[in-house]
Structures are given as structure tokens and as C-alpha cells.
Design a protein around this nucleic acid. Sequence first.
DNA 1: CACCGTTACGGTATCCGTAAGGATT
DNA 2: AATCCTTACGGATACCGTAACGGTG
Lengths: 325, 325
Amino acid sequence: MNLTQLRHIDAIVKNAYNLSRAAETLHTTQPGVSTQLRALEDELGVMIFERKGKRIIGLTAAGESIVSMSQEILQKIRAIRAVGEEFSQEKKGTFTIATTHTQARYALPAIITRFVKRYPDVQLRIRQGHPQQISEMVIQGDADIAIATEAIASYQQLLMLPVYRWNRCLIARSGHPVLKPRKPTLDLIAQFPIVTYDFAFAGRSAMNKSFIEAGLKPNIVLTAIDSDVIKHYVELGLGIGVLAHMAYDEKRDKKLRCKDVSHLFDDSVTSIGIRRGSFLRGYMLEFVEMFAPHLSIGQISSLLTKHSPELENELMQKLTDLPLR
Amino acid sequence: MNLTQLRHIDAIVKNAYNLSRAAETLHTTQPGVSTQLRALEDELGVMIFERKGKRIIGLTAAGESIVSMSQEILQKIRAIRAVGEEFSQEKKGTFTIATTHTQARYALPAIITRFVKRYPDVQLRIRQGHPQQISEMVIQGDADIAIATEAIASYQQLLMLPVYRWNRCLIARSGHPVLKPRKPTLDLIAQFPIVTYDFAFAGRSAMNKSFIEAGLKPNIVLTAIDSDVIKHYVELGLGIGVLAHMAYDEKRDKKLRCKDVSHLFDDSVTSIGIRRGSFLRGYMLEFVEMFAPHLSIGQISSLLTKHSPELENELMQKLTDLPLR
DNA sequence: CACCGTTACGGTATCCGTAAGGATT
DNA sequence: AATCCTTACGGATACCGTAACGGTG
């Protein structure tokens, strides 16, 4: 058994059980992949892949376990590499943040500016996606940390660090009747066409919850993953918008008026997600600390290396202490 | 980087930083180890071992992380091998249980008899030690499961499954004055020389606790890790004995009388300890289920593969439901 | 001087790419 | 016919053992 073989089976799975594709992504030839696979199966004494004739069509039960363990091993190999880089060139490296548009556009710029100034030789990459994609990027090792709202929680392989709470505001063109009352009600909002976040986004389900509990059915005419898109369509008069408070900018959005509606919806919590057991470079820990000042670098790294449900629970209990943005 | 290199650095650490010894346990030559080590250090760009001239004397900070990750990787490699064996020869293999004398002698025989009948081709091995040694055997991969009382809890790397509660009884030669009262008191016990478990054993500290709380200082004349040794010395009249209830056998121990003292001491809990993330063979899971019938095989394996503090907590909360032996 | 780790060298086994050959859709 | 996987073969490479060398206590 060797690491090449593990990388091979991982690639086969990730390329939909196609040896030729797997070979390409591995920068090698397809017979090589085939041979190594067979060697591994022979050594272990089990078929890893389900075959139909000569075609490979999926994983066997044994293969499921083997692949998942292999992936953990490859993950740790990456971690070892990271340790090497950390100690040999402290201020150089790459850093991939997987996040949503709203975070990238409104929550992160300030932090990233500070970060880049402090670590000019770190190549920073932001990968966008919806919360599910983001989580999977981190699990697959395609990103170092995830920043998103709530959805990260459903992955046991991710460690969640709550960062801040936020709520929504209502936006509309100035003069729109929904802006009249000092405190808009759900009833009122439900009377107008709404433009808001896509359903894949956590912020959206917190909104739906309030409407459902009130027995109302909002008229959602358009959804987007992107606050800027939402604002644009509201400007065009397509409807009223419901979006994260921080996404409204008084100076930029001069055609729009904003009204707080946090009394209508539950707070949402934005968190950082990190793959359990991974090794974060010093500058990554520092980034996390910049973004979530209530967490110390020591705490974060001990959460990553040690298994301590107590500390994790403590964090999840203290949500109300988080800053509201 | 390859697995050989990881095995090498692991062996170096486990052989007190002596390359020659490491080479022996790896069944290879010392220059080979040296070369591989250097190759790994070069590739990662960091020194893994602290050197004093040419001597290797310890780990660097980077080395600490690297070695601990390597060990996790090697652990998972073993797990993959186990998966292979599990699916190719379901009823064959080895099974190493690390446990204390008392468990091996009094709690396990019944289960092991059943197990051996069901899996005659599994080579069963029992390794004895005190709780700390036992836990480390499992962490190092030298044993598959640990069975001991409480001490396992202090290792975060181990998953703990509570199995049963137990308490102590007082033994003495028939006619001994301590046997007079129906319910002996701590005061009374403290008046006689006591033979009991070694301090390294969890059962012992629960006993000490009661004496300390009562402000008494028991006169402990002899400690042993072995119930049979304790009984023997009590038979010789060296003192009275305090030991696990299950260690007294009315038929065998005819010279001794036994008196329940569970009103004086807290219950102790015996647990199974398993290395987190390891893969247990089907027969191992079945053994655990035999020993702890309140746990299902499904529960156990999902506790091992998934990260779910909730389920773990639930188990730890339900201690009072455990059978008393 | 005994022990320990590094460097040098050469043979071998392993790996990997090319080429060709059956299977499956 | 096109795609896909396996088998066969040969060359390059990396690995490992032997031998010799420099440090350390």
C-alpha cells in the first residue's frame, strides 16, 4: 500500500469512476491507474470498486470505508506539508477562503485589507458558492476555511466557530408604501412582491420560518445568491427586497430606502467552518482571530488538534454574546 | 513523502531517538533510516528532529506536529488493512484486548467463552496492565480495545463506552471482628490493616475519597494490582481486604467471609475504550455488544466513524441505568 | 574505543509509460 | 465505432543494503 494508490482511488471516485479522467487529473496514464488499483485490491484482498464487466461503476461496501479513510489520510498528508511550509516560510503560502457573495462583498473587505497588508506574500484566493458547496470545498481540501451562515453546522467533519449575528432589513424605492409605518409587519410585507436570497442560503430559511409561523405566504418573485443583484432589481421596481443589514449602504444605494426588520425575523449566525484535524497555517489562524476577535489563536488551534466537545459546546451556547452586524 | 518515511519517523520516536534501534524494529538498516529521514526533512523543508551535533536528541516544534499527524495516518493505514481483512475473511483475524487483572479474571471469562465458541478462528490476545498502560496500548495501536475502570476517560483520543457499575466488598478471615456489625462503618475499617488495589487503579481512588471525606487515615499495609494476591494475603491474616464484589467467590474462597460495603464508597464504572477513528472488525463490534448489551453494533460503529458529541454525552449521562455487578 | 549518524556506491525491484488487446455501450 | 479497462513489455527510477567515514561521549 502506498500513497499513490490512495491518491488514485480518490481521483477515481472524484472523476465519476472513470479511470481515463482520473489518470488525467493525476497527470499520469490510464494503464498506470488501472495497475495500481489492481495492486491495491490484491493487497487488501477486497474489491474496492463495483464492476460491471470491465466497467467500473461504483464503490463496494468495503470500498466506501476504504475511500473515506484514504481521504482522511490524504488530508493529513496535506496537513504535514502545511506544517513544513509553516516552519520554513512563515509568511509565505496560499490561503483559500470559501464563502458566499454577501460575506465576500460586505463582511470581508475590511479584514482582508488588513490581512494583505500584514501578509503581502500570502496568495489569497476567494472561492464563491452557496453554503453547501462552500462546506464541501473545505471538506475536500479545496479551501482552507469556509465562511457562511449556519449551513456549515450540518457537516460533522467541520468545526464551527460562530463569528457574528446579523439580521435583515427591508429595502424599497423611496416613496414605496411599505416604508410608511415605523415598524413594518409581516402582513404588510407579504402584500408586495419580494426579491430576496436564494433558497440554498441559510439566511433565507430564517425568513421563511417567520412567514410560515404567521400563516402567511410571501410572494417571492425573484431570488438571487447575490445582494447586489437583489438591490438592482429592487431599484428597477420589481418589488421590495429583504436582505442582510450590512448589504445596504446608504451612500451607494441612494435610490433605495432601508428599514430594519429584525423584530420580524430571528437573528442568523455567520460562522467559520474548518475541517476537523486539519492544520491551519499561522497566518490563517491570525485571519480567523482578526475576523472573530472573541476567539484566540490558542483556542482555535487547540480546538483543531484536541477533541473537546465541552469547549465546542461552550462556544455554541454563547451565541447571544456575539456582536450584531 | 511516502508511508515508509512516516513509519520511520514514528519508529525513531518510539525508540527514544535512536536510529539504530529504530532500524531494527523496522527490519531494515540504519543508513536506510537515516537517508529516508533526511529525504523527508528536505522535502518538507524543516528539521523534524532536534540534533546535537550528529546525535538526534528529540523533536523540534514542527516535528511534534508532523509525528502526531504521521501516527494518525499510520493508524488509518492499519484501519484500511482491517477493512480488507473484514471483507475478505469475516471470521478470521486477531483481536487484542488490553485490560486489568480484575477484568480479565472475573468479568471477561464468561464473554470470552461465548466469543471463542462463535469465532474459533480469531486469535484472541489479552494484554494486562494498569489503566494508564492499557489506554496507551490502544492509542498506540498495540491493542484493539481497552477495558478498565474510569481512567480511560482522561484520554481525548479514546472513545469511552460505559459498560457496568460495580462496588466493593470487605473480606476477612472468618471470625475477624470487622465482620461483626451488619453494616461496617468507615471508622471500623480504618482500625484494621488493609490490603487493597494499587494506587494506579481507578477503583482505589474512589475508596480513598470516602476515607478522606470522613477525615480518616486508613492503614494500608499492602497494595496489589491483582485481586487474587489481595485475597491470598488476607487469607494469611495480614489484614482485611477491600476489593471488587465480583472478585469474591463464595465457593472458592472458603476461608474468607465477604461483607458488602457499597454504602461506604461511590460506585465505579467500568468502560470500554476505543481509539477514535479506528476501524473495528465485525467480531470486535460483536464482542463489545456481548459485553455491553445496552449498546448496539450500529451505535458503536456510528460513534466511531461520525463525530457526534451528543450521542457520547447521552451515554455518559445514563450511568445510573448501567447494570450493577 | 564503542556507539552513533552521515555519505557514497551499486544492484535490484518497483514503478510508469508505451503499445496492444478484449469488453461494453 | 467509440469509449473504457486490462494485460504485456521494457526502460528509468527510486529504494535499500553494504561499505566506508566523521562525530560524540
